[in-house]
Amino acid sequence: MREEEIKPDKKIDIRGLVCPYTFVKAKLAIEDMEIGQVLEILVDYPEAIKNIPKSMQDHGQTVLEISKKDDRNWVILVRKEKE
């Protein structure tokens, strides 16, 4: 799926945060969303690029995309599948 096809319903910018707070913030954001909605997470902590998708999948959510924005910043798209 190409990036322009996915319209996030909510965006969070958690640049500057480190693990585990990257996931904690992302989880708090997704808890407040409806099933089927997509969350866009902007991160710059290298470990979080692996950890957030893994934790989201462990919690039953779907990781749609992980893409590099530039040298430091990444975008992760997650679709909420369960409460």
Binding site: P20, Y21, F23, V24, K27, L28, E31, D32, S55, H59
Partner: peptide
């Protein structure tokens, strides 16, 4: 944070 991470607890 360690509570929020747990699926059984979470922010809610």
């Amino acid at each position: 944070s360690r509570h929020i991470i747990l699926p059984e607890v979470g922010g809610k």
